[in-house]
Design a protein around this nucleic acid. Structure first.
Ligand SMILES: [Mn+2]
Ligand SMILES: [Mn+2]
Ligand SMILES: [Mn+2]
Ligand SMILES: [Mn+2]
Lengths: 218, 218
DNA sequence: ATAAAAGTTTAGACCGGTCTAAAAAATATT
DNA sequence: AATATTTTTTAGACCGGTCTAAACTTTTAT
């Protein structure tokens, strides 16, 4: 049984490793966890004796199979809870993350299975992120940043890369949501901003930054 | 903002003080919290500087208004979560306590208000215990142990005093649930056991112990 | 009233997690 | 190749919570 803190480190390492494919540096972990490098070194030693990560002094860490499995379970719980909060309790998508950050650490296999069932075995959370199944399997959908999409082709919003409340609130305000249909009407070469048409109805300008954080499919 | 541990101590002290009416001894707290007296003394000092309890060395502690308010909020969350688990996730009443023991510490006012609403503002939990409202108000129902009820009068099960899984499972097995109608057919003077009729259908013998742990109303 | 027993607190230690300051190793610059 | 810079680790401390062992206070028994 992992501690609250161990779970959070593992989740961070999993994220930074791009799903287990690359080594992660001490400072990166410190950054994303909002702690100091010294604290990371300590924790990383603990996780490595538990065989959740491989650790080579001065060369960063690599997450192991077991570590990934644990991380994926935490992510599963996080996303199921976010889905619950939005679907059942009428939270808006910008309000759920912090609460899910707490709920993801509740220890009960039964609870998470029952919650999954109650929600109808959802495959993605309110931000379009895939929910790992009970075996940690995630069904990835190939999606691209809206910023890389061509002009005048209809695309559908599938997820956001930045899930900060301010970005999500902004999206809601201008009428963008998961599933929205979007056509790029014009690209401004100078600053990368684009004019888009949302659901064939509303024209708005969004910045390059915003366009990069919207992932779409055909 | 209280820590996980402070909340648990406060809840224990509230319980032992009979709703704030009597002083609580160090060893009682240690017992119910499964810790040692020395640990209790330490924590009790911390809670008293926060004005959540009054503490007089060697003479036990008394819970303050603020302490009670905090305790009641934890109890509110505990019971709302238990209700959620049974009503929405199909847990049985003997499976919910330990999970609720974790969920009760999630910090989010919005969450608990939305949960309350989602559940239809329930006033009692799966064990018949009253759920404090957002102001900490509990609506008490006068109820008596089944063991003190007279012969041949119909009573209704309102709550259980012992909520242990084994007792709850036993009750389910013999057909007793919150709301069940019960008539005492015979009392055995010797050991206090009673023969009862459940819902006018099923006759069973239960021990004095069991009869004392069932609270009923007319 | 004195001694024994029971209950409580203090002293000092440990664990998990964090930090700062200093040392060490790796990388970049010249 | 030597030096400067950046990154990482170590050493030592602190905090919240816990424990054991010893000291102290209160209660009970004689
Ligand atoms: Mn999230
Ligand atoms: Mn977390
Ligand atoms: Mn309970
Ligand atoms: Mn608790």
């Amino acid at each position: 049984m992992l501690t609250f803190t161990e779970e959070n480190y593992l989740k961070a390492i999993y994220r930074l490793s791009d799903g287990g494919s690359k080594a992660v540096l001490t400072n990166e972990i410190a950054e994303i966890m909002s702690t100091k490098a010294a604290s990371v070194t300590d924790m990383v030693k603990k996780l490595s004796v538990k065989n959740l990560i491989g650790y080579e002094k001065y060369y960063g860490v690599t997450i192991t199979r077991e570590g990934m499995a644990e991380a994926l379970m935490v992510i599963r719980k996080h996303r199921l809870w976010e889905t619950f909060l939005v679907e059942k309790l009428n939270f808006s998508w910008d309000e759920v993350h912090d609460v899910a950050e707490q709920l993801e650490h509740i220890q009960s296999g039964l609870l998470i299975e029952k919650l999954d069932e109650f929600l109808g075995f959802p495959t993605s959370d309110p931000h379009g992120h895939p929910i790992p199944d009970r075996n940690g399997k995630i069904q990835e959908v190939r999606q691209h940043p809206l910023s890389e999409s061509p002009l005048n082709k209809k695309r559908f919003v599938r997820s956001v890369t930045d899930g900060s409340p301010s970005f999500l609130q902004y999206l809601s305000k201008i009428g963008i949501y998961i599933g929205a249909g979007i056509v790029i009407l014009e690209k401004v070469e100078f600053d990368g901003s684009v004019e888009i048409l949302i659901d064939g109805k509303k024209k708005v300008f969004i910045s390059r930054d915003a366009a990069q954080n919207l992932l779409v499919t055909d």
